[in-house]
Write a protein that binds this DNA or RNA. Sequence first.
DNA 1: GTCTATAGAAGGATAGAC
DNA 2: GTCTATCCTTCTATAGAC
Lengths: 211, 211
Amino acid sequence: MAYRETEKMRQRKAEARQRIVTCAYQCVAESGFRSARITTIAVSAGVATGTIYRHFESKEDLFAEIFRLATQREVDKVAQALTTTGGNAANRLEAALRQFAERALRGPVMAWSLIAEPVDPKVEEERLAYRKAYARLFEQAIDEGMNEGCIPEQDARQTSTCLVGAIAESLVGPLSPTQAGDQPDLKDDNNDPLVNAILRFCMQGLTGTRR
Amino acid sequence: MAYRETEKMRQRKAEARQRIVTCAYQCVAESGFRSARITTIAVSAGVATGTIYRHFESKEDLFAEIFRLATQREVDKVAQALTTTGGNAANRLEAALRQFAERALRGPVMAWSLIAEPVDPKVEEERLAYRKAYARLFEQAIDEGMNEGCIPEQDARQTSTCLVGAIAESLVGPLSPTQAGDQPDLKDDNNDPLVNAILRFCMQGLTGTRR
DNA sequence: GTCTATAGAAGGATAGAC
DNA sequence: GTCTATCCTTCTATAGAC
């Protein structure tokens, strides 16, 4: 009888793939893309090294998937903060930016990998795409703010792009492994000086109002 | 008689290296890192393909050198604008930012390669380093502005980083090859709407004053 | 005569087409 | 999914410097 993939087999494969993804995610979260080894991922996922290449074309493709997975989580968090926070659109935007920065500083290894770690071109392409995704979210909030009247009229797309750039670039240094440990622990209560400085610039740029 | 490298030979080698660098630079300026071919560079430099590997360990190393060369030019231009422009520190800073953006939009292929093109990790590392170089220049200008009294007291390092991020991110879209041609020509007379929008955000973020 | 640098093509890997 | 084509890299023979 000819081989035909059964439902059971399909499920097994999907489970193996899921384990690989989960373990790769953990490896990256622990020490970044560059030190993530395919063999380490395979061992912790309980599969043979070669099996990984049955599920992913290459290491780069696996990394790109991990990148998308991890970044999408952050994008969702930002979207959530923008919709569930109280106050006007400017307040919501500020809360979302603050949350983005604080989450990054609380999980600095993964955040560094997502924001700035030099990886390969495939991951870089994902970065470009996801930066646009953040910008679209911010753009929508700015549009709302202009309608509400709490944000001055401006090119919302342009401003949203500036916000993405400013906050990402601000985190590069503090998240950098060469500087890790030099940083004091993140202060809670909306009172971290680094985060406050970033937000000051962003909100001033957005509203043109001194803070 | 044993062979020993003479001054003449050293000069020949240096010239060959220089030709390789120049031709590689032109290739990148014409169509970016990704489409730059070692063989093409070799032919236009008048050397054999293998010869390139006598001067550079790998394609990535050659590219990293081209990146440094090209980016240093831009850094120098910014430094120059910051020192030779008239007016107070805020004016000089604005002029430098404007010039950076306008130069990028006038040479979009090279600018895209330097700012955002997904290349390899070695080039990415150079990018991180050079972004710091820009930030240091801006930081110095902000410090001057705070002393002059034309810029409010703030964390100059943090703000300079935000400026670098905002302006770089703003240019990613307009410089992107997928969008090239969609853009109207750069308007002169300090009147390009894109550049003005970027500068508005940057200067508002810096000074907290509506413009 | 000995050693180096260069040319040019083979090898090997990867990406793209069908 | 396979096959082709392209392109980076390495290798070897040769020309030329000392």
